[in-house]
Simulated scan of single mutants.
Amino acid sequence: MSEKPSRSRRKPGVTMRARQFRSAGNQAEALLWTELKARRLNGFKFVRQFPVGPYFADFLCREAKLVVELDGSQHAGSAHDERRDAFLNAAGYSVLRFWSVDMLRDRQEVLASIVEALEGRLAENTDAPDMNYKMAFRRGRGRP
């Protein structure tokens, strides 16, 4: 008996790897996912550990082309993250990064910043101690 060819457009193994990332998440990611799933944040739909090229976005809103990343201290000054952000920006995604500890301590501020990015109210790149935002060409709900 022969196997049916896959109808998926994804490379073999990508879905399994995304599932592994989702199950290996940390407390901060679990808390943020609780706030983002099922369109709970202003009606925007997010997916978790979604493949974009060779990378996986922690959280992705396809409609707004926004990637939200929660990072631990091992990401401080990461050249890999810089390359990753450049790739995502070139693909048309804005990238919003927070420290995981900020999600645990200041959840409402993190969520407010995400809403600002989703609605196009973050109008320029930001590099602050608690947040990093790299805007792509397009942002928000269809706004240039």
Rank of each mutant, 00 (worst) to 15 (best):
D130R: 13
N26E: 05
Y133S: 01
N26G: 12
A30T: 13
Y93I: 06
M103D: 09
T15K: 13
D106S: 14
H75M: 08
L96M: 12
N42Y: 07
A136E: 07
L104I: 11
A136L: 10
E29Y: 04
E116W: 08
C61N: 03
R121S: 03
Q27E: 15
S6W: 02
A28D: 08
D130L: 10
R83G: 09
W33G: 13
P129A: 13
D85A: 09
A64E: 01
E82Y: 02
Y133Q: 03
V101C: 12
L88G: 03
L88D: 04
A57P: 00
G92R: 07
A76V: 08
E69V: 00
G120D: 04
D85Q: 05
Y55G: 04
G25Y: 00
R121Q: 08
E3G: 03
M16V: 10
T34I: 03
A123S: 14
R19L: 11
S113C: 12
A128Y: 11
V95H: 07
L118S: 06
A128D: 14
D102C: 12
A91I: 01
L36H: 02
S78Q: 05
L66N: 05
M131D: 10
G92K: 06
G140V: 01
L41N: 03
T34D: 10
A30F: 13
K37Y: 07
A28L: 08
V110L: 12
P54M: 01
G92L: 06
D106Q: 14
A24F: 06
A128I: 08
R19F: 05
E109K: 11
E69H: 02
Q20G: 04
L104K: 05
D127W: 14
S100N: 15
H80G: 07
L118K: 05
S94R: 01
Q108F: 08
Q27S: 15
S100I: 03
V95E: 10
N125D: 15
R22N: 03
S8Y: 01
P144I: 12
K11Q: 10
S113K: 07
F21T: 03
